[in-house]
Measured scan of single mutants.
Amino acid sequence: HNLTITQGKLFFHYNPKLCLSEIHKMEEVSGTKGRQERNDIALKTNGDQASCENELLKFSYIRTSFDKILLRWEPYWPPDFRDLLGFMLFYKEAPYQNVTEFDGQDACGSNSWTVVDIDPPLRSNDPKSQNHPGWLMRGLKPWTQYAIFVKTLVTFSDERRTYGAKSDIIYVQTDATNPSVPLDPISVSNSSSQIILKWKPPSDPNGNITHYLVFWERQAEDSELFELDYCLKGLKLPSRTWSPPFESEDSQKHNQSEYEDSAGECCSCPKTDSQILKELEESSFRKTFEDYLHNVVFVPRKTSSGTGAEDPRPSRKRRSLGDVGNVTVAVPTVAAFPNTSSTSVPTSPEEHRPFEKVVNKESLVISGLRHFTGYRIELQACNQDTPEERCSVAAYVSARTMPEAKADDIVGPVTHEIFENNVVHLMWQEPKEPNGLIVLYEVSYRRYGDEELHLCVSRKHFALERGCRLRGLSPGNYSVRIRATSLAGNGSWTEPTYFYVTDYLDVPSNIA
């Protein structure tokens, strides 16, 4: 807008934040220059609390790290170098490059900038070799853009010569660093050979998330399962459950009422301010606690030095998902009996873990797994792929695949051998790939016309006998059925096997 004052003059007093240069501009645009008398524009009460600059400061050096910015700028000295009290560095987070010096300023003089007072450097006698002032900004957020400017702080001049310097606002972004852990990993099994893994992005990506790394490792069953005799009275049979499938998407929606109208769909109840505040506090606490764990609990591995020492970490090797089922080394339970199943799973520490690289999504279907087997899954978020990966501390989750139908069934015939004193040795093959492992066998036998009897055969007993022995049988026709019990439950009964026990007292003698 054009402003013209045809008559009258300007009068400025007691404006401590208004620089004289701005008042002189007002004289020019209003056409009143030359009308004012000496005392109409006070030299001592206008701009006496402001830094009124008329020179431009330029930054000469900028260096960044993930949490620091090192700045240096060209030296500046007023005509009387004693008038320079120091520099004021202003900075704040700036997602967009549209910041002005006066953003967030209120009537009390406060604003949204963080201000650092910096002492002037030592003055050199040689004007050509003056030290460049600077400042190291610490405690910054990774991968965050900051708006920065600097200006001088000078003393009051009796001659009211307006001098000083100020830089333009520059924008500097800190470097990326390792992201925080992925949030809320959930693993479920939808079949006997697959596990579905879902997660949420890290709360602090500290860069642009480029991919996720998912490692999985087959877990050995508890050692007590191999040692305890679950045929003993009072000892509860062990059981394991597989990871249940995901709930429906509708039930997972946030901010939804727990109660549904019987007449149909209901609208979600909005969260109160107290609920939102509580969630923010919980989120802040979780982030602080995660940072504490990362800094205190997890110790970084030592990389190899120039002395030739090897990095103890196993090298990563990509495998196809079809090879995942046989990740671990199978060892027989008892070496003397080769027909026992290889369900003991000690994992070799030198073995390469299978892994998958996930790009542009937060889910993965891990296939080719062994049925009813526990897996430990390790999830890392990465925001750099080359020249070397920059990934987060791992988040861990466990899951067990679903049982395989008929995996616990005894394959092959049940054979028998009759000894003296009416002892019958029953023999059968253990299931080759049971659900988890076989903890015991149930032997059901009966003599024709009598009630059915049951015998429990422990895992250890089966390994020693290759089956079991029935003792003290009365003469007669017998039928026997056997079924295995694994961590997933009972298998199917075998087809009945028949044998006849004679009275050993009636056996004919070869003595003449």
Results as ranks from 00 to 15, higher is better:
residue 203 S to N: 13
residue 204 D to A: 10
residue 206 N to W: 15
residue 206 N to D: 03
residue 207 G to H: 04
residue 210 T to R: 14
residue 210 T to Q: 14
residue 212 Y to T: 14
residue 215 F to K: 15
residue 216 W to S: 02
residue 216 W to G: 03
residue 217 E to R: 12
residue 218 R to F: 03
residue 218 R to T: 10
residue 218 R to D: 05
residue 218 R to G: 11
residue 219 Q to V: 14
residue 221 E to H: 02
residue 221 E to P: 04
residue 221 E to T: 04
residue 221 E to F: 13
residue 222 D to Y: 12
residue 223 S to Y: 11
residue 224 E to G: 10
residue 226 F to E: 13
residue 228 L to T: 07
residue 228 L to I: 13
residue 230 Y to N: 13
residue 234 G to L: 10
residue 235 L to M: 13
residue 238 P to F: 10
residue 239 S to A: 05
residue 240 R to A: 00
residue 243 S to F: 10
residue 244 P to H: 12
residue 245 P to F: 14
residue 245 P to A: 06
residue 245 P to M: 07
residue 247 E to H: 07
residue 247 E to K: 09
residue 250 D to G: 06
residue 251 S to V: 12
residue 251 S to M: 15
residue 251 S to P: 12
residue 252 Q to L: 10
residue 255 N to I: 13
residue 258 E to S: 13
residue 259 Y to I: 03
residue 260 E to L: 11
residue 261 D to H: 14
residue 262 S to A: 10
residue 263 A to P: 13
residue 264 G to H: 09
residue 266 C to P: 04
residue 267 C to V: 10
residue 268 S to V: 08
residue 268 S to L: 12
residue 268 S to N: 13
residue 268 S to I: 15
residue 269 C to Q: 02
residue 269 C to H: 02
residue 273 D to Y: 13
residue 273 D to V: 04
residue 274 S to T: 06
residue 275 Q to E: 04
residue 276 I to W: 12
residue 277 L to N: 14
residue 278 K to E: 05
residue 278 K to R: 06
residue 280 L to P: 15
residue 283 S to A: 05
residue 283 S to R: 15
residue 283 S to H: 09
residue 284 S to V: 12
residue 287 K to G: 09
residue 288 T to W: 15
residue 288 T to F: 05
residue 288 T to R: 05
residue 289 F to R: 07
residue 290 E to I: 14
residue 290 E to Q: 06
residue 291 D to A: 08
residue 293 L to R: 15
residue 295 N to Y: 15
residue 295 N to T: 05
residue 295 N to K: 10
residue 296 V to H: 06
residue 296 V to C: 15
residue 297 V to W: 04
residue 297 V to K: 10
residue 297 V to M: 10
residue 298 F to S: 07
residue 298 F to M: 12
residue 298 F to V: 12
residue 299 V to T: 03
residue 301 R to V: 08
residue 302 K to G: 05
residue 303 T to D: 15
residue 303 T to N: 14
residue 305 S to Q: 12
residue 307 T to Q: 05
residue 308 G to P: 04
residue 309 A to F: 12
residue 311 D to G: 05
residue 313 R to L: 07
residue 313 R to C: 14
residue 313 R to G: 07
residue 314 P to S: 12
residue 314 P to V: 09
residue 315 S to G: 14
residue 315 S to M: 10
residue 317 K to F: 14
residue 318 R to K: 11
residue 318 R to P: 12
residue 320 S to P: 08
residue 320 S to R: 14
residue 322 G to V: 05
residue 322 G to P: 12
residue 324 V to Y: 05
residue 324 V to N: 08
residue 326 N to K: 15
residue 327 V to G: 09
residue 328 T to V: 06
residue 329 V to R: 07
residue 330 A to D: 01
residue 330 A to M: 06
residue 332 P to V: 06
residue 332 P to I: 11
residue 332 P to C: 07
residue 335 A to H: 09
residue 335 A to E: 10
residue 335 A to R: 12
residue 336 A to D: 12
residue 336 A to I: 05
residue 336 A to V: 14
residue 336 A to N: 10
residue 336 A to F: 14
residue 337 F to H: 04
residue 338 P to Q: 11
residue 339 N to M: 03
residue 339 N to D: 15
residue 339 N to A: 10
residue 339 N to H: 09
residue 339 N to S: 11
residue 341 S to C: 10
residue 341 S to P: 05
residue 341 S to A: 13
residue 343 T to G: 10
residue 346 P to I: 15
residue 347 T to H: 07
residue 350 E to I: 03
residue 354 P to E: 05
residue 355 F to A: 11
residue 355 F to Q: 03
residue 358 V to L: 11
residue 359 V to C: 08
residue 359 V to E: 10
residue 359 V to T: 09
residue 362 E to S: 09
residue 365 V to K: 01
residue 365 V to E: 06
residue 366 I to D: 00
residue 371 H to K: 04
residue 371 H to R: 10
residue 372 F to Y: 14
residue 372 F to E: 06
residue 373 T to P: 00
residue 374 G to P: 08
residue 374 G to C: 11
residue 374 G to K: 11
residue 375 Y to C: 02
residue 376 R to L: 14
residue 376 R to W: 13
residue 376 R to D: 14
residue 377 I to E: 00
residue 377 I to C: 07
residue 379 L to Y: 02
residue 379 L to F: 05
residue 381 A to I: 02
residue 383 N to M: 15
residue 383 N to D: 07
residue 383 N to T: 04
residue 386 T to R: 12
residue 386 T to W: 08
residue 389 E to R: 10
residue 389 E to H: 07
residue 389 E to A: 06
residue 390 R to K: 15
residue 390 R to S: 11
residue 391 C to N: 02
residue 392 S to T: 02
residue 393 V to H: 14
residue 394 A to V: 11
residue 394 A to L: 06
residue 395 A to Y: 09
residue 396 Y to S: 07
residue 396 Y to E: 08
residue 396 Y to L: 10
residue 399 A to K: 12
residue 400 R to A: 08
residue 400 R to W: 09
residue 400 R to M: 02
residue 401 T to D: 00
residue 401 T to G: 00
residue 401 T to S: 12
residue 402 M to Q: 15
residue 402 M to G: 01
residue 408 D to Y: 01
residue 409 D to W: 11
residue 409 D to I: 08
residue 410 I to L: 11
residue 410 I to T: 03
residue 410 I to P: 06
residue 414 V to M: 07
residue 415 T to W: 02
residue 421 N to P: 11
residue 421 N to T: 10
residue 428 W to S: 15
residue 429 Q to G: 15
residue 432 K to V: 06
residue 433 E to K: 11
residue 434 P to T: 08
residue 435 N to V: 00
residue 436 G to E: 03
residue 437 L to S: 01
residue 437 L to G: 02
residue 437 L to K: 02
residue 440 L to R: 05
residue 443 V to F: 01
residue 444 S to T: 13
residue 447 R to P: 06
residue 448 Y to G: 00
residue 451 E to M: 13
residue 451 E to L: 11
residue 453 L to P: 04
residue 453 L to T: 14
residue 453 L to R: 02
residue 454 H to E: 14
residue 455 L to K: 06
residue 455 L to E: 15
residue 457 V to C: 14
residue 458 S to R: 10
residue 461 H to D: 15
residue 463 A to E: 03
residue 463 A to T: 12
residue 463 A to G: 09
residue 463 A to K: 06
residue 465 E to I: 08
residue 465 E to C: 13
residue 465 E to K: 03
residue 467 G to R: 07
residue 468 C to R: 03
residue 468 C to W: 04
residue 469 R to W: 09
residue 470 L to W: 02
residue 471 R to H: 06
residue 472 G to S: 07
residue 472 G to I: 07
residue 474 S to E: 15
residue 474 S to T: 10
residue 476 G to W: 00
residue 477 N to S: 09
residue 477 N to E: 07
residue 479 S to R: 14
residue 479 S to N: 05
residue 480 V to S: 02
residue 482 I to E: 00
residue 483 R to L: 03
residue 485 T to Y: 13
residue 487 L to P: 08
residue 488 A to Q: 03
residue 489 G to M: 08
residue 490 N to R: 15
residue 492 S to V: 07
residue 492 S to C: 09
residue 493 W to L: 05
residue 501 V to A: 04
residue 501 V to L: 06
residue 503 D to R: 07
residue 505 L to D: 04
residue 505 L to R: 05
residue 505 L to I: 02
residue 505 L to V: 10
residue 506 D to C: 12
residue 506 D to K: 09
residue 510 N to W: 14
